[in-house]
Amino acid sequence: MREAYHIPSTLEEAARLLARYGGAARVVGGGTDFFVDEGHQDVSALVDVTRLEGLSDVSYHPPFVVIGCGATHSRIVASPLIQQRGTALAEACGQIGGPQVRNVATLAGNIAHALPAADGTLALLALGGEVMVAWAEGDALRTEWRALAQMFLGPGRSAIDSTRHIIAAMRFLPTGEREASAFARVMRPQGVALPIMGLAVRVRLGEDLATVESATVTAGPAGPVPFCARQCAQVLQGRPLNERVIAEAGEALLAEAQLRDSPHRATRAYRAQVLPVLLRRALHAAYRRAQAAQHQYA
């Protein structure tokens, strides 16, 4: 039976509450995954972190775009900053659920859920995201920025112990001149309401607006945790973004991604066919955007 539902108004208070329960309470965001999963009924107290002061929106703290743990998917999608300079994240968050879910579900919750195909997580990972972890030590509030990639132990297993730690915020360096990001995914209309393949890219072009100066590619499910495709990005680096290079990058991606059969979701063979398609679609979109971003931030 649930004994308490706390809605603290500061991060300090939230961290102290968790510490006070000593493991018997846990953090909850929008709860759109949490409350559906009937396995959590034994958690005696919940600490809702969606209304912490200064942590419920998107803001620009140069050089970073900072997203508070209370920021819902709707807020993220509606943020002009993210639309323009973290486009992949706006695209990914816009594809999750319907408005009722997006109005409540948070990106921090998406990260804490640690699913390898989580849309928002894949996009933030491609953007080079970091996560601020907060906890109470005695009366003191401790915080620490960690790379997003370190947050995952396995499918559904977070490196964060949500009975002790809070994902307080996320941040990334916004895309700048000649730079852009994009997200692409494919769903299957039967079986399970989960994406069967998602992919995000961040691309920076050279002065010639044709050569890839740097690229990040993430995909999932392509392993036990959200996957960063380094070989694929390597192939793109320093090359003009034409169909031959994209095809080569697709092959590299297939070689490094761990694709598998998941019952009622997708076969490995299917995933292997669509992954390069998603890569091409996302690269095309990011490439067009990067070219358009030529003078925007000059």
């Binding site: 709860g31 759109t32 559906v36």
Partner: peptide
């Protein structure tokens, strides 16, 4: 009761939410 069908939608401060899994205290 799983935020899938949306028929429990009500507006909280003008925003549609699935009331079946929206904590009342929120």
């Amino acid at each position: 009761n799983e935020a899938e069908c949306g028929i429990c939608t009500v507006l909280v401060n003008g925003m549609p939410v699935n009331s079946c899994i929206y904590p009342a205290l929120k």
